[in-house]
Amino acid sequence: MSLILTEIKNKTGIITLNSEKTLNALSLPMIRELAAVLEEWKTSENIACIFLQGAGEKALCAGGDVRQLHDAIIAQKAIDPTQIPQDCFDFFSLEYQVDYTIHTYPKPIIVWGHGIVMGGGIGIMAGASHRIVTEKSKLAMPEITIGLYPDVGGTWFLNKTPSAYGIYLGLTGARLDGADCQFLGLADYYIPSSSKEMILNALEQANWKENPHKTVTRILESISKDMCIPESQAATHQTFIQQFEKADTLEQFREILISYPEKDDWINTGIKSFEVGSPSSAHIIFRQLQQGKNLNLEEVFQSELNLSCQCCVHPDFAEGVRALLVDKDHSPKWHPATLDDITGEWIDSYFKWIIGEWKVNF
């Protein structure tokens, strides 16, 4: 079974992530197929724009196949735990190359961000020229719960959200709906899922002789213009989020989060994710977003590739995946165990250059 389905209709290249049973999670073979299609269509005269979707109605993409990465880390530990597992390097480097390709693609890419869009799914969506969410979109970067951090360009797009939303989303894995995404600039259009065929029909009838980006924009603006977008929970919590603009350290962030007096379900959910997540992840996420504010896109992906490889030789990533997806006991044994146990030297070790001559050209 092909992990990527393709179809061309009137110079519209339709790409479907085709692993419905895994909620279209990104495996290395799927990423390889996607990379090949994007490269082929980049200069093809038969393609004016791309429409990217997930198979089924549940998800665009639920993230990367971290179970496979866990297995590669465990196998490598038995040989030499100081070395990056080859499968992990291959996965992250190619995934980030695909994300970078989407960010810099010369043709319009429409991403149908319907259903679950998490982790690597957001990586695919974030850089597209035309990002659509629906009434069933659920987006999040919950990597803190598995000992990772918001990668796939998170350093770039989280830092571009207003106020302190980026650091809050990274440290709490807060779930966002379509209205939240449009408010935060993570989506361009809020369109009901029932209008998908209308979009595809309009693309099939489009005249591609003029500027394709303008043509796509005109189609999507026409279909979305009368949409009544629901109230955004992220927007209603703006006063709360603004408090974190004052947080210069992780300790200050935690104090503001815990001591905020007007807690509700949305805030309490964030507190819970932060408290049960990896203490090491919390520290590296805070530093990642602080240090990455002025990086260009290529530097972002280069730094994230190094950090992801470090996560593969540090203990918490494999342990987080074990607890959530392998043994499913939901009781990760983080090392170090608490925020207070973590030293500056420990966090520094995550940011040391590890990939050596494996540097990737984006």
Rank of each mutant, 00 (worst) to 15 (best):
K225F: 02
D341N: 05
P29W: 00
N361P: 00
P150G: 10
I15C: 01
I256D: 08
G54F: 01
P192W: 08
L23I: 13
A206Q: 04
W41T: 12
S259Y: 07
A164V: 08
E299W: 09
R175D: 01
I74L: 14
P192G: 12
G113P: 05
I167S: 02
S194D: 15
D327N: 14
L220T: 11
G178R: 02
L289D: 00
V133S: 03
I258G: 02
L289K: 05
I144H: 01
Q302S: 14
P279S: 00
A234M: 14
Q182N: 08
K225S: 06
T155F: 01
S308N: 14
L5F: 02
G13E: 06
Y149V: 07
L69N: 02
T104N: 13
S303D: 12
D327S: 14
M30A: 11
H213M: 02
V360N: 04
S27D: 07
T6V: 14
E143D: 14
K11I: 08
L3K: 11
N10M: 02
M1R: 12
F301H: 08
D71K: 15
N207M: 05
K333Y: 02
E40D: 09
N159L: 07
K352N: 11
W208T: 10
R32V: 13
K272N: 04
N268Q: 15
L17Q: 10
L305G: 02
D226S: 11
C61R: 10
M1A: 08
A202G: 00
L17N: 11
F317R: 12
E275H: 02
H283D: 01
C228N: 10
S259P: 06
G119A: 11
I354D: 01
V326E: 14
S163M: 10
K293Q: 15
L52S: 05
P85G: 10
N18T: 04
H237R: 09
E7C: 09
P106C: 05
S27P: 04
F244N: 05
L3H: 08
E275S: 10
F92D: 09
D71S: 13
K58Y: 07
Q291Y: 04
E245S: 12
G147L: 07
R322Y: 08
G119R: 08
N207L: 05
P162Q: 11
L52Q: 09
G270Q: 07
W358N: 15
D226V: 07
A126V: 14
K196A: 04
T343R: 06
K209Q: 12
P142W: 13
F51K: 09
